[in-house]
Design a protein around this nucleic acid. Structure first.
Lengths: 109, 109
DNA sequence: CTGGATCCCTTATGATACTG
DNA sequence: CAGTATCATAAGGGATCCAG
């Protein structure tokens, strides 16, 4: 990832990482456990295969996710969080709490 | 905001809210204090006027921001966080921490 | 000062079909 | 099983100009 002038602000940086429409959801699942590609697909039925692949590639490129390939037939690929990815956990927690408050808010309105 | 089937998950909800490229940054500033439109512009020199307006309208629509108009010449409009917006504060804190870790990571690589 | 109205462009996302 | 390739579309963001 390039380091431009805007990139010195933690919020701008965070925002960049979170742009992907499914990033948070994938982070959440991988935070619970390492998963295979097909497991992620089942857990996220609203993504197409190609979209999921792109998201994972992006997250891998950003250093959030580690991709482990087992050379065998049939192929097996596992996705897990990097150290940086695990450090994201507090954000997931607070975000989950807030997301639920927001859902309550929506119900009342 | 519509309530579709996906909207029962706090992460999906949160992701929707955070899609805006500048949402986090605006939240951060408004979390510190109520600001006028022109103050926000100065604080965020990389947004055009029209983009800032759109972002704020979106955040207002999402219930994060409150827009107060003072009927006077010249016009004065203040933006502040709603209760829901203030409850977002823990997310901002954890995100800031993580963003800084990420920046450190980038420096080393 | 605070925005509205347009037009344009890039990027993100999705559908579909094919492959080692 | 885990992708790739291609094509199509949609949405977000930005530039510019106008206005109460």
């Amino acid at each position: 990832m390039e380091k431009d002038l805007y990139g010195v602000c933690p919020f701008v940086t965070a925002q960049k990482i979170l742009t992907g429409k499914w990033t948070l959801l994938i982070m959440h699942h991988l935070n619970l456990k390492t998963m295979r590609f097909s497991e992620l697909q089942r857990a996220l039925p609203h993504l197409t295969q190609s979209t999921l692949t792109k998201q994972l590639r992006m997250m891998e490129g950003n250093g959030l996710v580690i991709r482990t390939v087992y050379s065998q037939i049939p192929p097996k690929v596992e996705y897990s969080l990097s150290d940086l990815g695990y450090e994201f956990k507090p954000v997931l927690s607070t975000l989950e709490t807030w997301g639920n408050k927001y859902l309550d808010f929506l119900k009342k309105n």
